[in-house]
C-alpha cells in the first residue's frame, strides 16, 4: 500500500557527502515505509552526480553508485536537469555521444514541475555550502 507521494530535490554537489548521504537515507526511508517516491531531481551543483566521469577521493562513499543502486532496486527515476547540467559540463546523452552516467536520465524543469505539482510532499537538500 502506498502511503504518500514524494519528490526529492538534491542541490548539493557530490563532494558534500553529508547532504548526499542525508538525501539518500531519506529516500531509502521513504521507500522502506511504503511511500511513493516519484522522482529524485538533481539540480544546481548536484547535476555533477550524473557525470559518468565523476571520481571521489579515495575512501569517500561512492554516492553516485549508491544512488544508481537505489534507483535500480526501487525503480525510482534519477532525473538530472539538462539545462543546468550543460552549465556544469554535462553532455546529457549516454556515452559515447555524451557523458551521462548510467542510471540517470536527463530531464527538464517542466517535467520536474509537473511531477512536483502532483506529489503530496516535497523534500529539498541544499547542502552545507548553500549559505
Amino acid at each position: 500500500m502506498v502511503n504518500s507521494s514524494y519528490v526529492i530535490m538534491l542541490q548539493a554537489a557530490p563532494d558534500d557527502y553529508l547532504a548526499g548521504q542525508q538525501a539518500l537515507q531519506c529516500a531509502q526511508d521513504l521507500v522502506t515505509k511504503g511511500n511513493q517516491l516519484k522522482q529524485v531531481f538533481f539540480y544546481g551543483p548536484a547535476v555533477i552526480y550524473a557525470n559518468q566521469f565523476l571520481q571521489g577521493p579515495s575512501g569517500a562513499p561512492n554516492l553516485q553508485e549508491q544512488w544508481r543502486k537505489f534507483s535500480t532496486e526501487n525503480n525510482i527515476p534519477l532525473v538530472v536537469c539538462a539545462t543546468v547540467g550543460s552549465q556544469y559540463g554535462l553532455e546529457a546523452l549516454p556515452p559515447p555521444a555524451g557523458n551521462l552516467a548510467e542510471g540517470f536520465v536527463a530531464g527538464g524543469l517542466a517535467e520536474f514541475i509537473e511531477t512536483l505539482a502532483k506529489a503530496e510532499h516535497f523534500l529539498q537538500f541544499q547542502g552545507s555550502g548553500s549559505c
Binding site: 539545462t83 543546468v84 524543469l109 520536474f112 514541475i113 509537473e114 548553500s130
Partner: peptide
C-alpha cells in the same frame, strides 16, 4: 541568497517554468 549565488538564477528559472505551466 544574494544575487551572485547561482541558486538565485536557478530558482528564477524554475519559477518561470512553473508560471509557464500555469501553476
Amino acid at each position: 541568497k544574494p544575487a551572485s549565488h547561482a541558486s538565485a538564477r536557478q530558482g528564477l528559472d524554475m519559477l518561470l517554468m512553473a508560471l509557464s505551466l500555469d501553476q
